[in-house]
């Protein structure tokens, strides 16, 4: 096991491609493995994995591309996901459980249940979302260890 010192951080960065369902979850799995290696508590890893996976899936489902950055500090993990996509017209509506704009073929795979953003909020200690129509969406999540 590797132990992070107080002033250390690990930065992981992943390029995400829209519609790449074959690669879905790989970035989140890599983040999870690093967290396991530095000995973060299992329940905390679970919250980080859910947050990052949901954000990763949103890029793959809705955007043309995006970048996910995970900054892992001794006491917290910060995940920022920035995409180039359609943007969200009504963020309050998008945050409601069950609301989704995912296309039918994605729903048939079991995505698009409208639980992505609510899951991210529930699993994060801090959550922020910014979106511009026609440009894209940025999500920032902080999960304390």
């Amino acid at each position: 096991m590797i132990k992070l010192k107080d002033n250390q951080k690990i930065l992981l960065e992943f390029n995400l491609a829209g519609s790449a369902f074959d690669l879905a979850g790989e970035a989140s799995s890599k983040i999870k493995r690093v967290l396991q290696q530095i000995g973060v508590a299992t329940e905390v890893i679970r919250r980080i994995a859910i947050s990052s996976y949901e954000a990763e899936m949103n890029v793959i489902i809705h955007a043309c591309c995006g970048v996910m950055r995970a900054e892992i500090y001794p006491n917290r993990t910060e995940i920022q996901v920035e995409d180039q996509g359609p943007g969200i017209a009504d963020i309050a509506l998008a945050m409601q459980e069950g609301f989704s704009t995912a296309p039918d073929f994605v729903r048939e795979m079991g995505f698009g249940a409208g639980m992505g953003l609510p899951n991210m909020v529930r699993c994060s200690d801090q959550f922020d979302i910014q979106s511009q129509i026609g440009k894209g969406t940025t999500v920032l999540m902080v999960i304390n260890h």
């Binding site: 369902f21 074959d22 799995s29 679970r46 795979m109 079991g110 995505f111």
Partner: peptide, 15 residues
């Protein structure tokens, strides 16, 4: 009843 590959990623992340 899903048989596509994303179920493996989900299962792995959840444990």
């Amino acid at each position: 009843m899903q048989g596509h590959q994303n179920i493996a990623a989900v299962a792995s992340l959840v444990g």
